[in-house]
Design a protein around this nucleic acid. Structure first.
Lengths: 114, 114
DNA sequence: GTAACTAGTTTCCAATAGGTAACTAGTATA
DNA sequence: TATACTAGTTACCTATTGGAAACTAGTTAC
């Protein structure tokens, strides 16, 4: 590292990227956000979108995303009870990031071949 | 999910984002990439940048990044032997993604207050 | 009464990630 | 001979993540 300015810039970037990754990291967070971004979603609909996710994990990850204010949970007193998950404004603000993740994922696949 | 087109688009996004996250996920990948992005780096220099990383983990993560063609490893026959890690073109292509991660991390910190 | 639909929860287990401490190997210096 | 520098490795342990299977609760239709 060349100098003190670089050192400070480096630590600053380390901190900001850590904050972001804490929210989107894990096997299921991004898949859930993508699924919900296609419109308001019910629990069972998200399960169908993301094959292989168990109800326990889905429930747990939805709670985490709700705590981080990425998605909202709305309960409807219909019969039977239904619940709708939707992106909050903060959740919607993830779009540019997710677009880059997507774009780079395709680039990587082209380059490294799988 | 409204229709067949959405379903296909959703699955496509799920796949691409999964590929990208496989590469950058984990506690240390992004910190290492950021550190190396500040110029070619020796093993000990990266250790100093990222306080708390153990040599075992750094070695292991550098290997993984090298396998994914994100960084290159160059050995110099100096005395004592030195090694330089640098971003490959594929590694450098991560810049827009990392910039968005950073940007969103700052936005999140402002919104959610920590 | 029984099955089915909604949205989960509970228990118990396996796999992966991460971490600590000590050690290795080659060379140079005091 | 002892110490230090380079760049790691090794063994062992803990913590977090992820997962399968069964179960819960409220309501409706057959």
């Amino acid at each position: 590292m060349a100098n003190v300015i670089d050192k400070a810039a480096c630590r600053f970037k380390l901190m900001a990227s850590h904050d972001a990754m804490e929210v989107i990291q894990g096997k299921w967070r991004i898949p859930i956000i993508i699924s919900v971004s296609f419109g308001n979603k019910r629990f069972g609909e998200i399960r169908k979108d993301i094959a292989d996710i168990s109800p326990k994990i889905l429930s747990q990850e939805l709670k985490a995303l709700e705590m981080n204010q990425i998605i909202s949970r709305t309960l409807f007193d219909s019969m039977p009870v239904t619940v709708e998950y939707a992106l909050t404004p903060l959740g919607k603000s993830l779009k540019p990031l997710l677009d880059e993740v997507l774009k780079w994922g395709l680039h990587f696949r082209k380059q490294v071949v799988k």
